[in-house]
């Protein structure tokens, strides 16, 4: 189906900005008229990915890098991509395991990727050490009748 709308949000990797990302993606996804629960799940998945970019992607708090959040809608499917150009992940399969964390000192639970996988229909992670991480998450909005305001194409 044709892409009916898209957005890109860029912000520095500062704690607190995950809230900006949550609100922007939620407002963007609201066009699909999701249930409150669906929207909560999407926001939580976005939070986890953005928080990871902020705290793991750019562990040096003094020089925050940039986090890029892109989202688009195809029919009733929302795709969200969260990207950083930070530390990267050496072993993505291991990082995705439940309870795996490299920062127990920050009281991380190691459940971020597991939460994203549970709340989204599909989660893809691409990463390279020293170059950054891209997380692509897809979620179909079941309650939606498709993007109602989209022009016929």
């Amino acid at each position: 189906m044709a892409r009916t709308n898209a957005m890109t949000l860029v912000f520095p990797a500062r704690s607190g900005n995950e809230s900006l990302a949550r609100v922007a993606v939620a407002a963007f996804a609201a066009a699909l008229d999701p249930t409150v629960e669906e929207l909560d799940e999407i926001k939580t998945a976005v939070s986890e990915a953005v928080t990871n970019a902020i705290i793991h992607g750019y562990p040096d708090r003094d020089e925050p890098g940039e986090v890029v959040v892109r989202a688009w809608i195809d029919g009733d499917v929302l795709t969200v991509v969260v990207e950083d150009q930070g530390a990267g992940i050496a072993d993505v399969a291991k990082a995705r395991e439940p309870l795996y964390t490299t920062r127990p000192d920050l009281e991380r639970s190691g459940m971020g990727f597991t939460i994203m996988e549970n709340f989204m229909d599909d989660v893809e992670v691409e990463s390279a050490p020293g170059r950054g991480t891209r997380v692509r998450m897809v979620r179909r909005i079941k309650s939606s009748a498709g993007a109602p305001s989209a022009p016929a194409h």
Binding site: S15, V23, A30, I54
Partner: peptide, 24 residues
Amino acid sequence: TPDDVILAQEATRPPASIHETVYE
């Protein structure tokens, strides 16, 4: 509006773990 509902929900969100972790 749905936008106001989203902003209102965000304002009542329990403090995220990131705030507890990054600044400790």
